[in-house]
Nucleic acid binder design. Sequence first.
DNA 1: GATTTTTAGTATCGAGTCGATACATTTATC
DNA 2: GATAAATGTATCGACTCGATACTAAAAATC
Lengths: 188, 188
Amino acid sequence: MTSGNLYNHLERLSEILRTDLRKSGIEHGLQPVQLEVLHYLSVCNRYSDTPLAVTEYLGQTKGTVSQTIKVLEQKRLLQKRNDTEDKRVSHLSLTPRGSKLLDQLVPPPMLTKASDKLPERTRKQINQALQQLVMALLQSNGMKSFGVCHTCRYNLHSKDGGYFCNLVKQALTEDDVERLCREHETVG
Amino acid sequence: MTSGNLYNHLERLSEILRTDLRKSGIEHGLQPVQLEVLHYLSVCNRYSDTPLAVTEYLGQTKGTVSQTIKVLEQKRLLQKRNDTEDKRVSHLSLTPRGSKLLDQLVPPPMLTKASDKLPERTRKQINQALQQLVMALLQSNGMKSFGVCHTCRYNLHSKDGGYFCNLVKQALTEDDVERLCREHETVG
DNA sequence: GATTTTTAGTATCGAGTCGATACATTTATC
DNA sequence: GATAAATGTATCGACTCGATACTAAAAATC
């Protein structure tokens, strides 16, 4: 019953946002999925900007994602570069054009408009509730959490205030630790 | 910034659920959108079970919805009946087959599983937060609220404890007032 | 009461999504 | 060195979805 109610709200939210995204995206020749890929690339870190990471994030097959990326590359919205160490993997990044376009469409004006009308306190509550729900969903289904370093068990604070990832064994910048990582594992 | 964060969570939630719905639906030959239509029909009232209402609910075009409905009818998951008064409109209802299938897939087991692991209090908070967000989204964008009679300004309580809709000028049953209505207008 | 407009819904088309399958190449394992 | 696993691409077919054009019934206008 409770999860049924939850689902009612979620489905409705989902559909409203997706429809809106489609409408605004279509004016620029972009599909919802393509915007999601661009958006992900704008918030992930340098270890998580590969086609495989996108695949895991979106939960689609690698073939499907490969196509999407190909289209976005042809549109000059993202660019692909080969990894210097592993010749199988490639890294994706937004072009200035892609970045600019994304800024116009995401977050959807519709959502911003609604969010702005809510009291600050309510907004925080909603935000927190959503975060909890995402975490619960990912955890109880054994999916990757794609969190930021702050909440990751691999993250070590060094004495000088810097950050160090104990998985990739490399120092991280202030910018790094605020981005989503495909290797993220919740502490505890 | 806040609405950006909000969007991050929502998009992730959306994509996870949609992918899951696709995966489980595909085993029964159903697309996400088709499940959404079936689900809507299971929660709407008798004034809101028309193709047009579905169109408004999903935010798609009537042509698109018409196709979806046609497929579902061919699969014997829903049935169409003509309105007795207005020959243009038709009413949709789930067949036993459709009802049974829907029960298996919605709400998604994935969500139920996650929801079950949360404390009751948290669950209620999340549920409430989502509801607020949906309302805010619909209100600030002038969309139909699709709420239940309890929160509708057309709903009148009669002295004997029954319900009466002042828009369609008809008495409503206990079952009626718990279903979504396309004519719903928030009180106040 | 006849004409026009609006409303509910259908038919068809083309661009695009997405999973499935098959494949190529590089790296890891034994 | 042979085999297995990992990363990514190519191609196919079923399906989505908006756009456009259409039918028929109801409502509005005159």
